[in-house]
Amino acid sequence: MESIRAEKVVKAFGETRALNGVSLEIHPGELFFLLGASGCGKSTLLRCIAGLETPNEGKIFFGDRDVTDLAPHKREAAMVFQSYALWPHLTVAKNISFGLEERKVPKDEIKRRVDEALEMVKMKGYGERSIDAMSGGQQQRVALARALVVRPKCLLLDEPLSNLDAQLRVEMRREIRRIVKEYGLTAVYVTHDQEEALAMADRMAILAGGVIEQLGAPEDIYRNPRSAYVAGFIGETNLLDGQFDHGFVDSIAKWGSIGIEGRVTDESWQPLAGDKVKISIRPEALRICDDGSIVGNVIEKVYLGQRIQYWVETVSGRLQVVELNPQRLYALGDAVKLTVNREDVIFLAK
């Protein structure tokens, strides 16, 4: 168990800067997520941590140790690759025992630990099979076992579930989290799947354009996004163009002719009356009720069983509304009134 720290890491490939001064600290024993759209630099950061890329500038620390120039094989940071990178010329057991052989672990212990690892990923008895005979889910678990069996100081996972079908993915999420917590590993997990991150992460960092947009616990980021990008990337949101105004007690913004009370999450930003702002309202934060102040008509709906999605046309524009466990269904054209808690309305700079 070790902390991982990145200090102002810059990595450029030719003209493009994949990482543009990234700093973060991952606590010991934490399951930390790097999240972002493709090309945001998240995989590059992970590969810098693994030592597979050397940063152009900045430093990387494991605990107090500067590992920036340390060769990958000396870092004890085992990685699970997106493509699994299982060696086709070795059996399942040989793949798993590879790292132990490199560490000159005695033969009988290798056998014991490989068996343990196979059991842990529920692959007991598959040791002598060839890699090609494994399904995608099995290969994923072999890759995980291969990384875990060496008892690494930290575990690095690069979109490990992206090649699996939806059901298996949900199952493996729980498995990976269980194993990471059981072994007390510091784990860094790269994904573009925000649901995966919300479901599994202790904390996460959202990257965009080679910099960290926001870093925090999943619920914090979901509740208090500090930029429109983050608000839109994590979960769904209504992102409205508004004009800031000061109320008597609270902040208010005008969305067209509609005034909405809300709050500012970015402490470094103090909007003035008349400033242009983005207003972020989660669809599930909007409620349909008789004393709502925002009026409109249902123009589209999607019924999803546990919830229903409506698009409501108001005088200022369109809003997406999600109702959970809907009791009353509205038809297209029905007039509805909407209300929202002040806490659920976020004013953002951009």
């Binding site: 693994a50 990958p72 094989h73």
Partner: peptide, 9 residues
């Protein structure tokens, strides 16, 4: 790279 990350020179 996988081998390198598992401690192989």
């Amino acid at each position: 790279e996988a081998a390198r990350s598992l401690g192989s020179t």
